[in-house]
Amino acid sequence: MSHTGDRKLENCGTRPYSLHGCPDVRLFDEDHEPVDGVRVLRDGASVVGGTGADGPALPLVLKPGEGAWVGLVWRNTVEAGAAVDVPYVRVRAKSGADPVTLVPELDLGTAGKLGVGPWKKKE
């Protein structure tokens, strides 16, 4: 089974905010320690296609009040080994940006992959 989740960013400032590519995503366990054994891939289609978390990474400029979203894609199938639960995800919108910690409670199964799509402008 595959899953998708989208995360949103809104420009709450007074100046344009530029984005390009995918956010920096880091995974943490219940003790806030980094999760090992999961590859974070910069394209949702690397896990499963047709979710909207794929396509080219285009530069975006968000005016004040505008938003963008990014999709996360994973499979929570369980085959051999222990399933991986990721309660915390730290996201940096771009290099040098302050991190934001999300609590999506990801059940990644044993697939060992999380696809991160490119930023896309919120319509």
Rank of each mutant, 00 (worst) to 15 (best):
G21R: 02
P34G: 05
P56W: 08
N11G: 04
K121P: 06
H32W: 12
A57H: 03
K121E: 12
K120S: 12
A80D: 11
L60I: 08
G96P: 02
V40S: 10
T101G: 03
P118Y: 03
V73S: 01
A80K: 11
W69H: 08
H3R: 09
H3L: 08
D6L: 08
V35W: 03
D36S: 12
N11E: 06
R39S: 14
P87K: 12
G5H: 08
T101N: 08
K94R: 15
T4W: 03
R75I: 03
L60R: 03
G55L: 09
K121H: 13
L106M: 10
P104N: 04
P118K: 02
V40L: 14
G37W: 06
T14Q: 12
G109P: 02
D54W: 07
D107P: 01
E10R: 14
E30M: 09
D107F: 07
N11K: 03
W74R: 00
Y88E: 08
V61C: 12
S18L: 12
R75K: 13
P16D: 04
A45S: 14
L62E: 01
D98L: 12
K121T: 10
R42M: 15
A80W: 09
P16W: 00
G117Y: 01
A83Q: 11
G50E: 06
V86F: 03
L106I: 07
A97H: 03
T77F: 14
A57L: 07
D98S: 12
G117H: 01
G55H: 06
W74M: 03
D85W: 09
T101M: 07
V89H: 02
R92K: 15
A82S: 15
P16V: 04
G67V: 02
R39Q: 14
C22G: 04
D43R: 08
G44I: 01
G115E: 04
R75T: 06
A68E: 01
V61S: 14
T101R: 08
K63P: 00
V47T: 02
V48Y: 04
E66T: 08
G52T: 05
D24E: 15
F28A: 02
G117N: 03
K113I: 05
V100W: 06
E105F: 12
K122C: 11
P16S: 06
L108S: 01
V61D: 10
M1G: 12
G44F: 02
P16T: 05
T14S: 15
G112I: 09
E105D: 15
A83D: 06
V38D: 02
V116G: 00
D54T: 09
A80R: 13
D107H: 10
D54G: 14
V61G: 07
G109V: 03
V84I: 09
S46D: 11
E79Y: 11
F28E: 00
L9M: 04
L27E: 02
A82F: 10
L62H: 02
R39I: 07
E33I: 07
G13F: 06
E30K: 11
H20W: 13
L106N: 01
E66Y: 08
T77N: 15
G112E: 10
V40T: 14
P59H: 04
G21Y: 05
P34H: 06
A80Q: 12
T51G: 05
D24G: 06
